[in-house]
Amino acid sequence: MLGELGMRGDGGGCGGLVNAPCPFSGVLAHLSALETESVRLVELQREAWRQQATREELCATVERLRAQRDQLRAKVLSATSLQQVMTEVDQENEEKRSEEEKSAGDSQLHMSLLTARLSHVKNLLRAHHLIGGYDITETRRGKGVCFSIATAFEDRTLETYNVEMDLARTMRICRHNIPPFIPLERLAQENFQSDIMAFLDSLSMHLNAYVGRRQQVRLIQELFHGSVKVLESNALCSILVLRCRQVGEKKAAALCTLEYGDPTRCLPTRVTIDSEEKTLTDSPQWNEIQALFLETPAHQALLAIRREERIA
């Protein structure tokens, strides 16, 4: 009865009174139900306050952190400029002081420190060269500048190409040793009046893709001496026709044609395989091989196929 009243709330209270055998017990029940209800409400209220407080606290933390971050940002900014100023001021001071301190012992120490620093800087410069940086050389007494572009395929370092630019009024290419089939003029027009770095990047992409394709042809000739024959290729190495012999009684010959439609990549965009045995060319194995050629350099794909003993 009590629970029922409590559940029904105020409206249900009247019904309880009418039906009750003793008039007082109904009133008491109603009162106690009201009491439970009010306790519940108070608790809810408290809970809501608590949540509100946590939320406010979190909000305050966010604000505090944000302020701290802004302060730090400003500090970092000022520290950078401060550093520059301090370096300048210090240098002036040092120069004044240096008039007074001169001794033979010092100069010996200076010499060795200088040599150490010099060799460190030299090492860093060499490292830039080794990781394929565009080496810059000033030419014609500062009137021109020459950029070197290193190329490599996998672990092999290959040719270095050079582009020399004239720095007079409008920048233009005056000398280079880029192969004629690389669209140098187009790349230059597209990029370099606005952004020399973008020009060098795209030129480097083209050159590296080209030497990569050429190196694959060389590697196939080296690794598959006699068994896989390169029937056709062109200067840009954008097409490659290979003939290999399948393993089996008939030793049927298969012709793989790799077309490199994207000059900035060293993987083909289209692969077709023809075989004397027509039944083989539609088999799932051949589809697998086709997929392999599309995502692996040709010599690696051929090595994998030979490992599986599909070609001789």
Partner: peptide, 8 residues
């Protein structure tokens, strides 16, 4: 071991 490719 494509060192140059990594940096590009």
């Amino acid at each position: 071991k494509s060192l140059l490719l990594f940096f590009r």
